[in-house]
Structures are given as C-alpha cells and as structure tokens.
Design a protein around this nucleic acid. Structure first.
Length: 712
DNA sequence: AGGGAATGCGTTTTT
DNA sequence: CGCATTCCCT
C-alpha cells in the first residue's frame, strides 16, 4: 500500500523518482498538479524527507495556494513547512532578508507598470531628446531587456534593432538609478536581484543546503533569469524536477524561453523523462482538434494526448455577421443551455485581447446575464485605490518619490506643477528624497505662504506616521490617512468611495486571516496578486477572460470568440514565424481548456477603432481543425431562436410599466455628459434607472433622467 | 490652478 | 471609438 496507488502508471513513475534530474512532460489536463502534490506527499510520508527541504515553484499565487492546500490535506499540518510559492514571492522573501547586500533597504517597495510608465515619462521629459517611440513602448522595451538579462550597458553595446538605442539605453540607465534611489523594484528586479543574491557564496550555500528537493511547475514559461535561479540552487544536490508542456509556452513576450524546457535533457545528461499523455479533462473530439492544430508547430516534442472520454458533440462553429451578432449568438446560446439545465458558472468566454470583452459585457447586461470579467482594469489599478496605496507606500518607504509625486496634490492642496518643480530643484541640490526635501520648502523662492504651509503640514503628517508605523496596525494607518487627508470628501462619485471602503475591508480581512501583518507585507501581498487569483468556483456567473488568463484552468463549456486573422493570430505574425508558433500554442491552450463543449465563433465584419472593417478572414487555426470535427451552425436557424429568446428574457426579468416604456428600457444605450456612455441595467420601482457606466453604476431618477440622458 | 476643447494614438498577451 | 495628453482660456 502506498499513497501513490491513487495515480496512474506514468504519474506514479514521475512521483517515485525523487533523486536526480527529472523532466515531466505533462500535456494539458493530464493531472500534473495531482502528480506533483502526491510526489511531495510521497517524499514526506514514505521517504521521510523533511518538508523543510522541499521547494515547489508555481506560476501564479492561485496555483501555489491550491498546491499548498492539497499537500496539507494529504500529509497534514507538516505540509505547511514545504515552501510552495511563485518565483516572485520567493524572491521577495529572500530579498527582504538580504536587501542590504544589493544596496536596498529591506522595506523596499514594488512598482507596477503604471509606476514604471510615470518614471519613464519623467525621465523623457528630463533628457528632452526627440524620440519617435511612445513611453509605453519604451517601458516594454526596457522590461523585455531586463527579463532577457540585458543590463543598460549591454543594451548600449549591442545596439540591436532600434536606431534610438542610445536614447533608450540612457533612459534605461536612469530608470534603474531612479528605482534604486526610490528603494523600489519592478517585477523584473525581483528576479534579477534574487539571481544576484545567489552569486554571493554565503547565500547560495545556505539555499542549496536548505532546498535539497526542487520542483518547478510550468517550466516552459520560465525566463532566462528564473532558469539561472533554479540552476544555481539545484547545483549541489541536483534533485530537480521540472514539469511543463512545450506546447503551452505562451509568455515569450515576457521573456519566457521555451528552450529551457527543450534543452533540459542537454543541461542534465542523466535526466529521466516521463510523459503524461492521458488526458482526464476533455472529450476525444476536443483533443483531436487540439492535436491537429499543434502538430503544425516545429517546436513540438511530439506527444499525443489521448482520452477515453467519448462524446458525440462536435465543435460548434458560428460565422457571425459582425461583432454584435457574435455576442448575441453567444448570449442566446448560453440562455438556451441554461434553460436546458446548465448553470451560468459552466460557461467561459475566451478571447485574445482584453478589449474584446466590452461588447460581450454590453450584450450580457442587456440580457440580464450574470458575468464576471477577469483581467483588464483591476481593482488595485483604479485611481482612488492607487492614491490610497501611494500614501501607504510613502509611509512604508519614505524614499518612494513616485508615490509621493502621485498624491502630493491629491486631494488638492494647492501644490501645483510650478511649486513641485521648485521642490525638485532643491531636492537635486541636496541629493535627498523628495519627502525629506519637503521640510526645506522655506528655501524656495516665490511660493505662496499658504502653499508652504500645506507642504509643511503634509511633511508633518507623513513624519508622524512614519515614526509610529511600527506601533500601528495597517487598518489604523489606513484610517489615519483617510481622516487626516479627508480623501473621501474629495471624491465626487459614490462608487469611488465604496471602492475605498472596500479596500479597507480587504485590509481588515487580511489582518484577521494572517494575524496582524506588517505594512510592508500587506503592500507586497497586493502587488503580487494575479487576476485569476480571486476566481471563486461556487458563484454562479459566466466568466470572461483572455486566453493567457485561462492558463491552468478548465471549464465545461468554452466559447472561443474572435477567431479571425489579425486578431488571432494577431497582426504581428506576418513578419515572424516564432510569433506565429506562439499564437498557435495559445490556440492549443484555448482549445484544451474545454471539458465537454467547445464553441468557436468569428465575424465577417467588425468595428475596429470605430471604423468598420468588412471582409475579415477567419483564423487559419480554424482551418487546421479537420472538417469532420466541426459543425457549422446555420445562421437562419439561430436567428429564429434569437428572436424567441430575446423577448422571453426581457419579459421575464424586467416587467415595467407603460409609463416609461416609450422613454427608457432596460438595455438601452444612453449618454450622459459627465459619465459618458452607459447602458440601462435595471429600473427600480418605476422610479429610478440603474445605469452601468464604464467604471461605475449610478441610480438616476426617471424624472431627472429625462433631462440629463440622451438615448444613443 | 483648473476646466474644457482639440488632438492624437492605440491592441496583444501579465507575474 | 475611447482615452490620455496638451493647450488654451479663465
């Protein structure tokens, strides 16, 4: 009797080999996480390996959390001692301990892409040189260089691709300096500096001796730096198990290097290789479609998924007239299936780009279908939330100029652009942080005394909190910020107030769950959450997300929408076969998310930037699926269903009186001067319209609405 | 300093 | 088309 009796033959082999290098090639849905968790349980329970010696690295926090729970349920409380985390969280932990080795303070902050952008914009202004690239592009060029392990100096030497390389190198150099000065790191730095730490003999040895058994999940999506980190730690004991699927490598744009997995056997000549090819997720037809698409790639190692899950359901294909028709089709198809006994939670819409979600959102609102969009504009990226977090960042890390600049005049303190320039002049002369400069405001000429007062007031406010932060809980600090700055009073929209209060709730929730965390810990936690981390399985709504976000997940019914050339694959593939192969892998990922049913749609006509683009081609990937697996739905046939369903739905859900019938209906698109375009979501007691605008929901009395709203 | 109009740009994908 | 940035006006 062994704990491994619960695995199939190959899974078991993979779990039993715990010494030496091991490559597990695990196809989609082949029970990869299961194999890993049982492998860990086997090590602890049956091989008497100390949990403390085991390190497992995953791609997302959600995956880490899931694996932790599953390990703990197999081995009990001991499982807590296994280190299961993402590369980034693992790095942060280490960096906090050894920050001083690389010139940082241990309370360093973490910058997101917004912060990166504002730094780059400022640097561009400072050097004032002409460059025909947008700040956004420059950020992504720099990030890519960093993920590829290219230093600013190397960037200049290599002078590849860009004729503006000199300027970019200059920006890159200053950018790195700025981050160091701000005692902050971006996402790439978390990896780069972790890797650097491992060049210190003392640190390296300590880690090598601790993590005698290492597992890396989603190995096909590791980048060069992550590769080096793993290689260095595993060097001594060589008990390295990597799990992945070269066909699911979809993060090349972020520096992921598919060669890491392809070359594993070259790196470790004595590596054992196990293939997991039995799929427990999808039906035969779905798998055949996936296999026939991916076989067009040259990088595939040749592995063929199989299953005994039979089904007569072919893959449904719908050719829509245009984007709206496509969304209607999906909505009505879902309604039809719900009537036949399915739940909303069983449906997921997958698309290539976030922008595609909009039209589905509109149509779902119109039909009163519950849905949730993952990704796109996140909670923590909203203006009001970022403002509050900027305050907390400055308190946690007073060197954080970026955060201070963000809120120095929010709420309005009459500290305008001119005044800020003057403060900065003083700062550059003194070579200190922006925060410390505030107290020298007296040295500035021609700044109004009112303004000077409010600067001193701001300085004292921060000073007090910085000194007291260790004695205060995060909630108390939050309350103090809200109260003293009167931030809520400055907000005009009710929803923004609600969001800030929601933020407070989440702080309280985290503090109770983790027993009073430090401010720096809290800020770190929220920097590293990913979009699908908060996916809740038991709530009944339709899920919408990009294919990238769907990685590692599975759903009963998948709608793969926007299957058109120039969207999927995107435009870029014309110039680059490598890009095309990555897009094809993305398509493979999308298809293999589906358990029971897959529906593919494309449109002949679509609005792009407000312009109509007719005669669009369906995706070449669709042509790579054999015809006998596909069933095209006749448009006429569907239309009649659409009509019937539509009237039925609206009558069922929204009975409203004759009084307002002629004016406003649920589903109407309207325009408001201040809030922009919106859609009427509901009508409350015949008195108020509930309107969904882009970022908020508003209630407007009908009498008022008649005056301020325009139907469009 | 702040509001409003005019302009210009964008789509990959994210830890 | 929607958003952000800029510029011009008060």
């Amino acid at each position: 009797m062994s704990i491994l009796d619960n695995l199939n033959e190959n899974q078991r082999k993979a779990a039993e080999i715990i010494e030496g290098p091991l490559l597990i090639l695990a196809g989609a849905g082949s029970g990869k996480t299961r194999t890993l968790t049982y492998r860990i349980a086997h090590m602890i329970k049956e091989k008497n390996i100390e949990p403390y010696f085991i390190l497992a690295v995953t791609f997302t926090n959600k995956a880490a959390k899931e694996m932790k729970e599953r390990v703990e349920s197999l081995v009990g409380i001991e499982g807590e001692k296994v280190m299961i985390s993402t590369f980034h969280s693992f790095g942060v932990r280490l960096l906090r301990m050894y920050a001083k080795y690389i010139g940082y303070d241990s309370n360093f902050g973490i910058y997101d892409s917004d912060d990166q952008l504002s730094i780059v914009k400022r640097i561009l202004k400072e050097i004032g040189r002409e460059i025909n690239l947008t700040p956004n592009k420059i950020v992504s060029i720099i990030s890519k260089a960093k993920e590829d392990g290219i230093t600013p100096e190397e960037f200049e030497e290599k002078r590849v691709f860009f004729h503006d390389y000199k300027t970019i190198a200059e920006v890159y150099k200053r950018y790195q300096k700025e981050l160091l000065k701000n005692n902050s790191m971006d996402f790439s730095d978390l990896l780069i500096y972790t890797n650097k730490l491992l060049d210190i003999e003392e640190v390296k040895e300590k880690l090598q001796n601790r993590y005698k058994y290492i597992m890396v999940d989603e190995y096909q999506d590791t980048n060069d730096i992550q590769y080096q980190i793993v290689t260095k730690i595993a060097l001594k004991y060589r008990n390295l198990c990597v799990v992945g699927d070269e066909d699911q490598s979809i993060y090349g744009f972020r520096g992921a290097n598919i060669d890491n997995i392809l070359n594993f056997e070259k790196d470790y000549k004595d590596a054992k290789v196990i293939k997991l090819e039995r799929n427990y997720r999808s039906t035969e037809i779905i798998l055949e479609a996936a296999n026939s698409v991916i076989k067009n790639n040259t990088t595939s190692k040749g592995k063929k998924l199989w299953t005994d899950k039979k089904s007569k359901d072919l893959i449904t294909v719908y050719e829509a007239k245009n984007g709206i028709d496509e969304a209607y089709f999906v909505a009505h198809n879902i309604i039809k299936n719900v009537d036949n006994g399915r739940n909303y939670r069983e449906f997921t819409i997958l698309y290539r780009t976030n922008a595609q979600s909009r039209i589905f959102e509109e149509v779902f609102l119109k039909h009163n279908l519950p849905y949730k969009i993952f990704g796109g504009m996140q909670f923590y990226q909203r203006k009001e939330i970022k403002d509050i977090l900027a305050y907390l960042n400055v308190i946690n890390n007073p060197n954080d100029d970026v955060s201070l600049l963000r809120i120095i005049n929010v709420p309005n303190r009459k500290i305008g652009a001119r005044t800020i320039e003057k403060i900065r002049d003083i700062q550059y002369k003194k070579g200190i942080s922006l925060f410390e400069t505030l107290k020298y405001i007296e040295e500035a000429t021609s700044v109004r005394s009112n303004t000077k007062n409010s600067i001193i007031e701001l300085y004292n406010f921060f000073k007090t909190l910085i000194e007291e932060k260790e004695f205060l809980s995060v909630t108390e600090i939050f309350d103090e910020v809200i109260e003293k700055t009167r931030y809520l009073d400055s907000l005009e929209e009710e929803v923004r107030v609600e969001n800030v209060l929601e933020l407070k709730n989440s702080i309280i929730e985290q503090e109770t769950r983790e027993n009073n965390i430090q401010l720096s810990e809290y800020l770190e936690n929220i920097s590293l959450v990913s979009t699908t981390d908060n996916l809740e399985e038991n709530q009944d709504y339709i899920k919408l997300m990009t294919i990238h976000n769907s990685k590692g997940l599975e759903f009963p019914v998948v709608y793969l929408v926007g299957m058109e050339e120039d969207i999927f694959p995107g435009k870029k593939v014309e110039f680059d076969d490598k890009e095309l192969e990555e897009e094809r892998r993305l398509c493979y990922v999308a298809i293999t998310r589906a358990e029971e049913k897959l529906v593919i749609t494309y449109a002949n006509e679509r609005n792009i930037y407000g312009r109509i683009d007719s005669f669009r081609d369906k995706s070449r990937f669709l042509d790579e699926i054999p015809m006998n697996l596909l069933k095209y739905i006749n448009r006429k046939e569907e239309k009649t269903i659409i009509k019937k369903e539509k009237s039925k739905k609206i009558e069922n859900f929204n009975p409203f009186s004759l009084k307002n019938k002629g004016l406003f209906n649920v589903g109407d698109k309207i325009y408001h001067n201040k809030f922009g375009n919106g859609i009427i979501k509901n009508i409350e007691e015949n008195k108020r319209l509930i309107i969904k605008f882009k970022y908020e929901e508003k209630k407007i009395a009908i009498a008022v609405a008649e005056k301020v709203l325009k139907k469009i």
